[in-house]
Deep mutational scan, measured.
Amino acid sequence: MPVRRGHVAPQNTFLDTIIRKFEGQSRKFIIANARVENCAVIYCNDGFCELCGYSRAEVMQRPCTCDFLHGPRTQRRAAAQIAQALLGAEERKVEIAFYRKDGSCFLCLVDVVPVKNEDGAVIMFILNFEVVMEKDMVGSPAHDTNHRGPPTSWLAPGRAKTFRLKLPALLALTARESSVRSGGAGGAGAPGAVVVDVDLTPAAPSSESLALDEVTAMDNHVAGLGPAEERRALVGPGSPPRSAPGQLPSPRAHSLNPDASGSSCSLARTRSRESCASVRRASSADDIEAMRAGVLPPPPRHASTGAMHPLRSGLLNSTSDSDLVRYRTISKIPQITLNFVDLKGDPFLASPTSDREIIAPKIKERTHNVTEKVTQVLSLGADVLPEYKLQAPRIHRWTILHYSPFKAVWDWLILLLVIYTAVFTPYSAAFLLKETEEGPPATECGYACQPLAVVDLIVDIMFIVDILINFRTTYVNANEEVVSHPGRIAVHYFKGWFLIDMVAAIPFDLLI
């Protein structure tokens, strides 16, 4: 008679799926529990143990900040960024110097990925580790590398530091407007667009060049630039800015003055950032001319202004700041037409079709709590990747769950009947059967004279019903998954307890 339990259901295979997918890609990662103190490590794979030199037993239950890997060259700011990422709910990448158990130093890129439950609360953290440099290539500990984003994938490793954006290309926007319009339909740009040429040739750093990471940081200074100062900065030398009595002219307006920039070969870094931020506020060169004239017309309804409409929906549905990093990277690809469009465009503009998908598509409701890094690593669709929660398995109709209350009560009843059979069957065979043979035949009273025979008949009927119930009862397979398919249940029961239950259900007393 089957006594099969499996009270692990309803099970959740999400954690096993993450481990299996990460292991298949030869990654070095740990999984931490966000619900406990210090976000203790609950799993670390073999790749991480080989990377740091510690065994799994030495890593388990330690804080996922990996303070046991810190050393003299470990930056405090990087460690603080990892700790801050564990307090938030967004994906974050941090470069930090770690030390192995043998004392060797290596520069590592740590990717902190939160995993949320159905309520939107962070319950786990996945920390992925990628070695960037070994100890002989690690720089000085005073050099802070965590304020910069990861290198873009479309640049060669040897040319990542030679990417320079020439400031004269930004200063000569109005001069290039006529050349853009003359391109017409034969050019790649839309009317009114501004073409910015980027020099990728390796050259020595000069005062006129600005690194790509500095251009990325310009967006942080746009908020500090007032509207009046932006307007004066875009007017140009024809209309000098008016300053109040006793007030000095704005240095932001002076930063885009061609006369002032041409007199000296070098520009201050602050002026460069502010000038680029001011130019980015204009949607095209037409807006710059309109600002000089004193009238700013409404933005025209053409394809170039609607190019950012799908980007707005993608940004609203993005799951991490990696989408913004990807957008900034692609927006700086050289030799393309940049349409400086305000994100607050007309909502009635139709979304044009684009061959290049900048932001990841909208994630469906079932995966809105899973970050983009987890979705990318697992390579699963929205119909396959579940949320991290207890999910009731989908069972067929008329199927009994093996952990249901009805099955528990039924098993206790069958257990009592088995005990009765084990006690009274030998007793009936030894004593009652002998008395029946010696006594007179009682054929007239039937079952009324033999109450134990009636009980034995009921017990046999219950055993037959138990066999039928076992054909529709779920079970737990070797992978700790609840199986509810009727065919698989029948095959599993035939290979197991079916023969024993059938022999126990045969009414031998009635056959004798």
Rank of each mutant, 00 (worst) to 15 (best):
P2Q: 06
R5I: 08
F14E: 12
A32L: 01
R35C: 06
C39Y: 14
C44Y: 01
D46A: 10
F48E: 01
G53L: 05
S55D: 08
A57Q: 15
M60P: 01
C66I: 08
I82R: 01
Q84C: 07
Q84L: 06
A85I: 01
L86W: 01
A89G: 14
A89M: 14
E91S: 07
R92F: 01
K93V: 08
R100L: 01
G103R: 13
V112P: 01
V113Q: 07
V122W: 01
F125M: 05
I126E: 01
L127I: 07
N128D: 14
F129Y: 07
G139Y: 06
P141L: 15
P141N: 14
P151Q: 13
S153E: 07
K166V: 01
L167F: 15
L171Q: 15
A172T: 07
L173N: 12
V180W: 04
R181K: 13
G184P: 14
G187V: 08
A193H: 01
A193T: 05
V194F: 12
D199C: 01
A204Q: 06
A211K: 15
E214H: 11
T216G: 14
A217H: 13
V222A: 15
G224F: 15
G224Q: 05
G226V: 08
G226N: 15
G236Q: 01
P237H: 15
P237T: 07
G238S: 08
S239I: 07
P240H: 15
R242K: 14
S243Q: 07
P245E: 14
G246D: 04
G246N: 04
H254C: 07
S255G: 07
D259K: 15
A260F: 08
S266Q: 07
S275R: 11
V279K: 15
S283F: 07
A285Q: 05
E289R: 08
V295P: 09
S304P: 15
P310C: 05
R312K: 14
D321H: 06
L324Q: 15
Y327I: 08
Q335K: 14
L338F: 09
V341L: 06
D355S: 10
E357H: 15
I359Y: 11
I359M: 05
A360K: 04
P361N: 14
K364L: 14
E365I: 04
R366A: 09
T371M: 07
V374A: 06
V374S: 01
V374E: 01
V384D: 08
